[in-house]
Structure formats: structure tokens, C-alpha cells
Design a protein around this nucleic acid. Structure first.
Length: 316
DNA sequence: AATCGAATCAACCGCCTCTCG
DNA sequence: TCGAGAGGCGGTTGATTCGAT
């Protein structure tokens, strides 16, 4: 199919020559692109490309503010973070990476990140553990279900406790109605037990506007995402150290006590669970949701519709 | 040095949305 | 309200490069 903008003229396809690049760049830097469909005409008779092709070439290659070179680990992490929330919305993801294009991000994802996640036993689409991974490692799984909240329309479980290989892990899902002061950071370089937060509310995130990140001041990606979140669900997996002797959250390389805030840094809202004193085959953990909400210092009334604040985990 | 498969990436395709008459 | 055109996007393709044998 031929584009409307190219239907009335002979257009060249395929790779751009240096001469074409030079002609297009010179035209746009002096006149701006205006209407892309008119760019080939205005840029001179030898630029026999369709407007769409010119636009793409400018955006992906000629733009002066493009960043060259391979992606940094920080950029990679940002891509993973945003992708978890937005899915394959490459142009939105690229907005968080100055100098990178959607095409570049998409290619990097498909050729590199995707494989890394799969190698870590994660589904690159959902960022959840691959089902085969559970089976392969013969993981146990426990789900806590006593959290009840009218805002939790999915009726999903509040907790999941399971094992990855021999390491116990816990998934915690927190229904939120507004933006909490909870800004975890994650170590993607760790083992499978040190997982990034899961993305249980994919549809919720999509329902509610995430589109205008630019309104928010520059911030780490999770912050800017959370800032525009008006409802949804946060979910994290925390690793539990040792052979089931305790259960603790890892945050900024520090372990923390049960439901205690890190006092030194008000922005450090790590959660920890140290009540898993029994072996993983048989243990329980109480979870005081009220206390947890206090710790997060949530805006007043945020969880007012929670009817059953205390939850209990059992295993075995 | 030659071959071949994998990885990479630029570019295209086709669909969707927005704008404007 | 509707349709045409343009811009924008994500998926896909195909050429090129890279690396192993």
C-alpha cells in the first residue's frame, strides 16, 4: 500500500544516502518541518522520499538531540520500570529516556531486555514469574486472602508466599486509592529471589491516565508514574534471607524491622517482615494493615474503605 | 578464509487517532 | 456528522554486522 502523501510522486525506499540526510537535515534546521507531507517537495527535487519517511528519518537519526551509543544500565532499568506499568508503549517509555527514540527502545527491548527477563524466569509481558519457572523449581505457594477492600475490585489476594528454588519469597499487593509516599527501589542484578515489583493491576494502570508524565518534575521513574496514579494496586516481591529463619525486605541494601520505617531517611519507606520464624514448610505471619498504612504515611482517608485491616498468613 | 546462524537495527507497513473543512 | 488527510504509533521485515565453527 502506498501512503497518501507519496501517491502522487515517485518515492525512493530503503536506506537513506548521506546526500539525502544532508538535504533533509539542512531543510529542517533552517525551515522546520512544518507539514511533513510537504517536506520532500520543499527540501528539493532530489529528496524523493515520502513525508512519513522524512519524519521517521529525522526523529530516529538526524535529530540533533539524539543520544548515541549503547544503553546504560540506568536506562535499561528505567525501561523495565516503565514497561512494567505501561507495556509496549514505546513512545511513552522513550519520553523517560532523553535522547532515545521509541524505535531504539523497542529494538533494545526486543533484542536484549526481553531475553534477560526470560532468563531470570520472568514473563517479559507481565513481569511476573513465568508459570514454567514455578513448576521447574517446584515452588510452594501460599496466598493470604483476608484483606478485604471495596477498592480492591479484582478481589485479588493481598499476599502470596512462595519459594524460588530454596529461597522463600513473598509477594505483597497493596490496593491504593492515591499516591503513597512509598517509593521503593529495586535491585535487578540480584538473584531470582530479589525480584522487581510485580504488575498485578495492568488493566488498572491502563484505565487511569498515565499519559502526561511531562507534567511532573524530573524524578525517578517510579515516582513520576506514581504521581499520576489515582487508583490502582502496588505489588512487590520481597526476598527473605536465610533458610526460612526470617523474612525481611531488602531496600537500598538495608534490612528493616517488621513494619518499621527507616528513621534516618524519611524517604526510605522499606517494609520488612521478620515474623517468619518457622521453616517455610509451616509458618505464619501476622500482618497489621493499619500499622502498615501508618508507616506509609498515606494521605488522610486514603484507605478509609478498608473493612478488615488485619490479615493473617499461614503456611503448610 | 569461508560459511552460517544469531543479533542488531533502520525502515516500512498498516492501523488508529486527531484535526479540519 | 462525516470523511479525508496527516501524524503518530507498535509490529514486523529485511539488510547488515557479528561471532562461532
Amino acid at each position: 500500500m502506498v501512503h497518501q502523501c507519496c501517491s502522487k510522486q515517485k518515492v525512493k525506499r530503503g536506506l537513506w544516502s548521506p546526500e539525502e540526510d544532508e538535504k533533509l537535515a539542512r531543510h529542517i534546521t533552517t525551515h522546520g518541518h512544518g507539514s511533513w507531507s510537504s517536506v520532500p517537495k520543499l527540501a528539493g527535487q532530489w529528496l524523493q522520499r515520502c513525508g512519513k519517511s522524512c519524519r521517521l528519518r529525522w526523529i530516529n537519526y538526524l535529530r540533533p538531540d539524539l543520544k548515541r551509543g549503547s544503553f546504560t544500565s540506568q536506562e535499561e532499568r528505567t525501561i523495565i520500570d516503565v514497561h512494567r506499568i505501561l507495556g509496549n508503549r514505546w513512545s511513552q517509555i522513550a519520553k523517560h529516556l532523553p535522547g532515545r527514540t521509541d524505535n531504539e527502545v523497542k529494538n533494545f527491548w526486543n533484542s536484549c531486555i526481553k531475553k534477560k527477563l526470560i532468563a531470570q524466569g520472568l514473563d517479559p509481558n507481565t513481569h511476573n514469574l513465568l508459570p514454567s519457572s514455578h513448576h521447574h523449581h517446584h515452588n510452594h505457594k501460599l496466598t493470604g486472602t483476608s484483606l478485604s477492600s471495596s477498592s480492591n475490585s479484582k478481589g485479588s489476594s493481598a499476599f502470596s508466599v512462595f519459594q524460588i528454588d530454596n529461597a522463600p519469597a513473598m509477594e505483597l499487593k497493596i490496593p491504593v486509592v492515591a499516591f503513597p509516599s512509598f517509593t521503593p527501589s529495586y535491585d535487578y542484578t540480584g538473584s531470582a529471589a530479589l525480584l522487581p515489583p510485580m504488575q498485578p493491576a495492568y488493566d488498572n494502570y491502563h484505565q487511569h491516565s498515565f499519559t502526561d508524565f511531562q507534567q511532573h518534575p524530573p524524578a525517578p521513574v517510579p515516582n513520576s508514574l506514581m504521581n499520576s496514579l489515582d487508583t490502582g494496586e502496588i505489588s512487590c516481591i520481597w526476598n527473605m534471607e536465610g533458610d526460612g529463619a526470617s523474612m525481611s525486605a531488602k531496600h537500598n541494601d538495608n534490612d528493616h524491622q517488621l513494619l518499621q520505617r527507616h528513621d534516618d531517611d524519611p524517604n526510605n519507606n522499606a517494609i520488612a517482615f521478620n515474623t517468619m520464624d518457622a521453616p517455610m514448610e509451616s509458618c505464619s505471619a501476622g500482618f497489621d494493615f493499619d500499622q502498615y498504612m501508618d508507616m506509609l504515611q498515606l494521605p488522610c482517608g486514603m484507605f478509609s474503605n478498608l473493612s478488615d485491616p488485619v490479615d493473617q498468613l499461614t503456611w503448610g
